[in-house]
Design a protein around this nucleic acid. Structure first.
Lengths: 284, 284
DNA sequence: ACATCCGATACCGCACGGGTATCGTGCCGG
DNA sequence: CCGGCACGATACCCGTGCGGTATCGGATGT
C-alpha cells in the first residue's frame, strides 16, 4: 500500500468515475483500473461498486477515504518540515526567451506562496536552448515551448499556441488571411544559433536560407531583425507585436505548446510541486 | 516519497548502519544505499552524515525521523480499519505435515493477537505437497520446508534444521555416529506420492528403490513405516522420535529450512503481516 | 435495436528496484 | 608506517511493475 495507490484511490473516490479520475491524474484509464483492483486485493476488501455510469464507494471504501486523505495530508506536510530543517532550499527555473513573462510571472508567485521557505532563482535561456538549460543540468525545471528532443524529459502542456509568419506590414504578403510553405520560397529567414536541437530548428525554419542570414538569440532580437532587415520569422501569435510588424497564421505547422518541463529521473519534491502548481493554475 | 522509502530510512536511522539496516530489511546493502540517496535527492536535503563506521542523522534527518515514524504508524492502522469496515477477513494458512505444531502453534496466536478480527483457517497438506497448497492456490501463505521449486514463490527462513536417517534401533547401522550416501545403497526407502515436486522428491530420497516400496503421506505414516517395515527415511531431526527409532545425522544433504512461503505476486496485507509476525517471533 | 459510454482485459515496452561484484576510503593493529 | 578490514558507494545485470494503446463485454437509454 504505497502513497501513490492511495492518491489514485482518492481521485477515483472523489470523481466517482475512473476515466475522469485518470485524466485528473494525467494518466489513462486502464492502469488506474488495475491499480484500484490491486489496492482492493491487497486490503482484501471491495472499495468500489462498479455501476454502468461510474463507481460508488463501499463502506470499506468510505473508511479508507477518511483515513487515506488524512494520511496524504500528513505526508505532504513532511516535505516542508524537512526542507525547513535542512535550511533554505533552492529551485532554479529555466525560461525560454519570453516565457518568463508569459507564465512565470503568474506561476512563480503561486509557487512561492505554497513554499515560502524556498529560494526561487531564474535562468533566462536564449532561443538556441529549447530546454532552457534543463538538458545542460543548469536548472531544475523549465518553462519553454515545444517541439524539442524530449528524451529523458517529462513535459506538461500549459497552453497550446498556433504559430504565424511575422513580417513587416509593407511585405508583399501582408493582407493575406493565411500563408503556406510555398509562399515562403526564397524568403530570407532568421537563423538560430548553430548546434541547436534539430527538431526545434526545423520547426521554426521557414523559406530558404540563401546566403548568410542573421542569428537571433531572443524574441526581441528576432522581431527587430524582421523589422530592420526585411527577413521573416515564425513566432507564437499569443503576444502583441511591435508596431510595423504583422503576423499571418501559418497552417503548415502544428501549434507550439507552452510547457513546463523537468527531468524524467530524479524529480525532486520541489519540482513535483512546481508542476502541480502549474497544473492547477492553467489546466482547469 | 513513497512509504517504502520511509521504512528504509527509519531502519537506517535506527541502526545507524546501512549494512545492518539492510539485513533487518531482508535486502542487500547497495540498493538500500541507493534508496537513501534517492530520498535525499527528492527531499533536497542531506539526511545522514557518512562516517567510517556507519551513518549519523543530520538535523533534517532527525526531523524526518519524527515525521516519518508517525506517518508509518498511521499507515499501518489503516489496514486494520479498512478490513474491519469490510467485515471479517480470512487468512488461510497451509501447513506441511508437522509444521503446524512446530511453528504454527506459536505463530498463529501471535498473528491473531495482532489481527483479532481476522479469521485464520488451516489447511494441512500431506508430504506430496511441498508448498502446502500454495501452488494450487488453496492457501494464502504456507508453513513448510525447503527444498522445493520456488518459482513464483517468496520464502523466509524461520529455522534451519539438519536431516538425519531414521531407522529402527536394531538396524545394522544403529550406533554409527554418522552415515553417508554410500551406506544406504540397496536399502528400502519410503516413497513419496507420484507427481510430487522432483526437487523435493530428490532431497528426501536415499538408498535405492528396488521393488515396490510403501507410499507415505504424513510424517507419522513415514515413521510408522520405518518402524513396521524396516525401511528407512530421511527426516528433519528437530523432533522427538517414537520409541524404537533412532536418527543418525546425514552429512550428504544440506539442512532443510523450516520456512514461511507466500506467492510472489498479489501479496495481500494480511500475508505481509503474517510474514512479519513470523520474522519477529523467530529471527531475533 | 443499436449507439454510446462505462470499466475490464490483453498485450507491449521501458523504467525502477532488486541482485552480485567490485571499488575507494578511513580506521586500526602490528 | 603500512597492510588488513569494514564501511558505504559505484557499476552493471535482470526481472517485475507500471505506464501506454487497442479492444472487449455489458449496461443504459434513446
Amino acid at each position: 500500500m504505497d502513497l501513490r495507490a492511495l492518491r489514485y484511490f482518492i481521485a477515483v473516490a472523489e470523481e466517482r468515475h475512473v476515466g475522469r479520475a485518470a485524466s485528473r491524474l494525467h494518466m489513462t484509464q486502464p492502469p488506474l483500473s488495475r491499480a484500484i483492483r490491486h489496492l482492493e486485493d491487497e486490503l482484501g476488501a471491495a472499495l468500489f461498486e462498479r455501476t454502468a455510469k461510474g463507481v460508488t464507494l463501499t463502506p470499506a471504501g468510505t473508511a479508507l477515504y477518511d483515513e487515506a486523505s488524512a494520511l496524504l495530508r500528513q505526508a505532504d506536510r513532511i516535505r516542508g518540515r524537512v526542507t525547513i530543517a535542512a535550511g533554505a532550499a533552492t529551485l532554479t527555473v529555466g525560461t525560454l526567451a519570453d516565457t518568463a513573462e508569459q507564465v512565470g510571472g503568474r506561476l512563480v508567485p503561486l509557487f512561492r506562496a505554497r513554499h515560502p521557505h524556498v529560494n526561487v532563482t531564474i535562468h533566462e535561456a536564449d532561443l538556441g536552448e529549447p530546454t532552457a538549460g534543463l538538458r545542460a543540468g543548469l536548472v531544475d525545471v523549465a518553462l519553454t515551448r515545444t517541439p524539442f528532443d524530449e528524451t529523458g524529459i517529462s513535459v506538461r502542456v500549459l497552453r497550446s499556441v498556433p504559430v504565424g509568419v511575422v513580417m513587416r506590414d509593407d511585405d508583399r504578403l501582408a493582407g493575406r488571411a493565411s500563408v503556406s510553405s510555398a509562399d515562403l520560397a526564397g524568403r530570407r529567414w532568421v537563423r538560430l544559433p548553430d548546434g541547436t536541437d534539430p527538431i526545434w530548428t526545423a520547426y521554426w525554419a521557414g523559406g530558404t536560407h540563401d546566403g548568410p542570414s542573421p542569428v537571433m538569440r531572443t524574441i526581441q532580437e528576432c522581431l527587430q531583425m524582421v523589422l530592420w532587415n526585411g527577413t521573416s520569422a515564425l513566432a507564437p501569435i499569443d503576444q502583441p507585436l511591435p508596431a510595423g510588424l504583422i503576423a499571418i497564421p501559418f497552417a503548415d505547422r502544428p501549434p507550439s505548446d507552452l510547457v513546463v518541463a523537468w527531468p524524467k529521473t530524479g524529480r525532486s519534491s520541489l519540482v513535483r510541486s512546481f508542476v502541480d502548481v502549474a497544473d492547477n493554475a492553467w489546466s482547469p
